[in-house]
Amino acid sequence: MWSVTDDALLEGMAAGDPDATEAFVARFQRRVFGLAITIVGDPRAAEDVAQEALLRAWRHGAAYDPRRGSVTTWLLAITRNLAIDVMRVRRPLAIAPEELVAMPLRTSHAEPATLAVAHDDAARLHAAVADLPDEQRRAILLAGIGGFSAREVAEAEGIPLGTAKTRIRTAMLRLRAVLVTPDPAE
């Protein structure tokens, strides 16, 4: 089952194949739960978010468009949106920004060859995030993963709104530059 591509697994799940569904959940649950708990902090709430994200993938799998990104990217975006909405409704800013910015970043490891390019990009992005000035890295992780608005970043960091916006913008420009510039090692 592990040799099956993510796309094929999602397709099988969308078609109602129980084996594909089980394999899909098994393959993605650690990624989905990991992102959910990073954002919401609490294991129970994270489980709800992770389950809902997988449920949505199961229900809407037929609507997935591979041209717009990998299955992982699609599923993580669903997870983040759900986690952020939970945070907004239940406990605004309940997660300690310190924990979010101190999170151990995931390093890429060997995965099916179809994803090699994407993971190469993720590895480069990982290095680029690590290279950012501390205050920019904090701002981009709070905003990009935690879903903090610029105003919430400003409050969490005790800085003016304009400064928060500048940090987010500058960090994004640096990361984008790394991704659009060909890797010199290749």
Binding site: F33, L35, T38, A50, L76, A77, L105, R106, L179
Partner: peptide, 12 residues
């Protein structure tokens, strides 16, 4: 999109 790939994995 790629930023989300950096979140750590965790056992549910």
């Amino acid at each position: 999109d790629l930023l989300l790939h950096l979140a750590p994995e965790a056992d549910p």
